[in-house]
Simulated assay, not measured.
Amino acid sequence: MDRRLLAVVGVCVTLFVAFLARGVLLSVGRVALVALLLALVAGVALLVTREPAYGRFTVGERTRILRRPVDEQGAHRCVDCEQAVTDGERRRFVREWVLFGVPLVLLDDGENVYCSACAGDETSELADDELLREK
């Protein structure tokens, strides 16, 4: 076979394979783009409909305290008065890095239990630094 003919056939086969690969990549790219756009729209819809943890324009490191009643009676001791907790409050503190109201990175967290007397006492409110040290 002539080398020139072999070179022409090789170039034609290469162009044909490149054309097919281009078509496959374009169709995969279109599907990926549509899937990405749908995921983006679903994520924005989820963020808009949920109650935000912080204000929508909050950016930076923030701490929040989540409060709920103690469910296990007597299994814990109060952080302030060291008494067994029969009726009280469990406070979970969360220090996070926030971007536009959405917590992105959990920096630190912990939990404290207070009896009902200390939970209602204004002096039992600890500063963020003290909360972070206790666990």
Rank of each mutant, 00 (worst) to 15 (best):
F57T: 09
R67K: 10
E61T: 13
E51V: 14
F93L: 09
E72D: 13
L33D: 07
M1W: 05
F16L: 10
L99P: 05
L126Q: 12
L26T: 12
L26P: 00
Y54P: 11
S124P: 10
L131C: 05
L131Y: 13
G10W: 02
F57V: 04
L37F: 07
R22A: 08
R95N: 00
V31Y: 01
S124D: 02
S124G: 13
R4I: 14
L46I: 04
F19W: 01
A127T: 15
C118N: 02
A117R: 13
E130W: 09
L36V: 11
L66I: 15
A35Y: 03
E82A: 15
T123L: 07
E96H: 09
E122S: 13
I65K: 05
D80S: 12
D128S: 01
V8L: 10
R62T: 06
R95I: 07
V85T: 09
F19P: 01
E72Q: 11
L40K: 09
D128Q: 08
R68N: 08
V13T: 10
L106I: 03
L36M: 06
R90E: 14
D109V: 04
A53R: 03
L25C: 08
A119V: 03
L131A: 04
T58Y: 05
M1K: 06
G74P: 03
E96Q: 12
L15T: 07
D121M: 02
R50V: 13
V28Y: 05
R56P: 14
L131M: 11
D109Y: 02
G10R: 06
F57M: 06
L99G: 04
Q83T: 15
V59R: 04
E51T: 15
G23W: 05
E51S: 14
D128G: 01
S116I: 11
Y54N: 06
E122M: 02
D108K: 13
F100P: 00
L126A: 15
S124V: 07
V48H: 00
G55R: 10
R3F: 09
Q83A: 11
V41N: 00
A117Y: 03
V44W: 02
G74S: 11
D121V: 11
Q83K: 12
W97I: 09
L107G: 00
E111A: 09
Y54T: 08
G10D: 13
Y114P: 03
P103D: 06
G110P: 14
A7R: 10
T63K: 00
D108H: 12
V24Q: 06
H76Q: 02
R133K: 14
L37R: 09
S124E: 00
R22I: 02
V31F: 01
L25D: 05
L104A: 11
C12H: 02
S27K: 11
E89I: 06
V28D: 03
Q83N: 06
F16R: 08
G23A: 14
G110H: 07
V8P: 01
A39P: 06
G29E: 00
T63M: 12
T49S: 13
L99K: 01
T49N: 01
A75Y: 06
T58D: 15
G29L: 01
F19G: 08
C118A: 06
